[in-house]
Amino acid sequence: MPRLSAERRHRVRFTLNGSAVEAEAEPRMLLTDFLRHELGMTGTHVGCEHGVCGACTIEINGVPARACLTLAVQADGATIRTVEALAPEPGRLSILQEAFRRHHALQCGFCTAGILMSLDNYLRQRPNPTEENLRVFLGGHLCRCTGYVPILAAAMDAAKRLREVPANA
């Protein structure tokens, strides 16, 4: 039975954005801190550390989840995607990211990574959402800059474009 002592750092391995990664963590280290400070993936942000704001949302084993409500050791062996994986290639944005830019769906950009990770997953599961569906789903995120109006517009627009060109998704 794997038993990790509090006093020591332990190897944690998982697949991050398609590549195998590993680093060390104490049992108590939050996945947010592990991603940001051990692996250098600073795109995932920390807004509240108690699971309400959604800024740290990432994809764990194919579903959006809060990195701040996850211990790094719990993620051992998981498949994780973060905002750094969304763009198809350097210098090019995904359809969702482009829609965010076009609709001014971000201002400070601090909450944006989490919202993108949630929406990217959601639009793959539900390509035909209503605005109401999106409002309910985005209820798990706080944004203080935009008032959500342009985020909803961008999400609806992205959904439409993804339906038109599914190959580029």
């Binding site: 940001r36 993936m41 600073t42 795109g43 995932t44 942000h45 920390v46 973060t82 905002v83 750094e84 969304l86 763009a87 944005l93 990211q97 965010f100 830019r101 971000l106 400070c108 950009g109 601090f110 944006t112 990574a113 993108l116």
Partner: peptide, 15 residues
């Protein structure tokens, strides 16, 4: 500002 912020390349103080 947006390309960096949308791709996780923002440069906030803790980054």
């Amino acid at each position: 500002e947006d390309a960096a912020l949308l791709t996780g390349r923002g440069r906030f103080i803790d980054d």
